[in-house]
Design a protein around this nucleic acid. Sequence first.
DNA 1: GTTCTTACA
DNA 2: TGTAAGTA
Length: 123
Amino acid sequence: MKIGELSRRTDTPVRMLRYYEEQGLIHSERLPNGYRSYEDYVVDRVRQVRGLLEVGLPTRIIKQILPCLDGSRAIYLPYVTPDMIATLERERDRMAEKIECFTKNHRAINDYLDAVSHEIRAS
DNA sequence: GTTCTTACA
DNA sequence: TGTAAGTA
């Protein structure tokens, strides 16, 4: 598929898709006319990259750990370095903190909504 | 009409 | 990240 379709399917700006490629996060081949051509699996790859980005991981870290998280559950032992493990543990802990924060705010908003709805029924 | 690269805000 | 320019 061409970049326009990948953009629609992943709801990602074309600009960002080219940027991800520049950062080595996704791969593409070229059509005779110079247009980028993507394999179907790239759709899931982009979604995963976006997910990691949303959690706050910088592209350089993503590029570094993507091989470990990519598609198949296979483990790439040859690429496991102490440095990589440390990075993953650090990011995992960061995510845990964010989850706590989200949970807390989710409760707060939920409680507020709950109180408001009761208020409306009472009035 | 779609995509490409480069460059600027 | 968005957008503009000039192409292919």
